[in-house]
């Protein structure tokens, strides 16, 4: 298969709910073309999509860098949004600070971060209130 390190970079636009998910969709297509195991692709796609939606809902968009190596896929989602006040609380299934209009769009059920944890092998959240949030996720190429 591939031996090289591949890096993909995306800008996630602010306030454009219709287009949210385009970066995740693109990564999914690329991994498929590379012949990556479909189960791994799905884990990456879901985790990244939840993160991308979060950036549109809670922050003002941001950037996503994806690094693909033969061992793992790393996603770094960075925004200059309001930050997460209580990460432990945000990780609880069902806890949400999303406004009601987001719920009517099908999100804001408080499942975003729990899903990101569920589908990745590593999840690290570095957030400072008023400064921004960086979420780093890794999915191993070899299934456990």
């Amino acid at each position: 298969m591939m031996n090289d390190k591949i890096k993909l970079c995306y800008d996630v636009p602010a306030d454009d709910f219709t287009r949210a998910g385009e970066a995740s969709s693109n990564v999914k297509s690329k991994l498929k073309m590379m012949g990556v195991n479909p189960e791994i692709i799905r884990k990456v796609a879901i985790a990244m999509y939840e993160g991308e939606i979060n950036m549109v809902i809670h922050a003002f968009g941001g950037t996503i860098d994806v690094v693909i190596t033969p061992d793992e896929i790393e996603m770094v989602l960075k925004d200059d949004g309001p930050g997460i006040e209580n990460i432990e609380l945000a990780m609880q299934a069902g806890y949400s600070t999303a406004p009601d209009n987001i719920r009517s769009l099908g999100f804001g059920a408080g499942m975003g971060l729990p899903n990101m944890k569920k589908y990745t092998d590593e999840l690290n959240i570095d957030s400072t209130v008023g400064v921004g949030t960086t979420v780093t996720m890794k999915v191993k190429m070899n299934e456990r």
Partner: peptide
């Protein structure tokens, strides 16, 4: 019963 582009995106991510 939801009808917006994210329904299609979600379906895509989930295969």
């Amino acid at each position: 019963g939801l009808c917006n582009p994210q329904v299609i995106r979600t379906a895509e991510m989930m295969d």
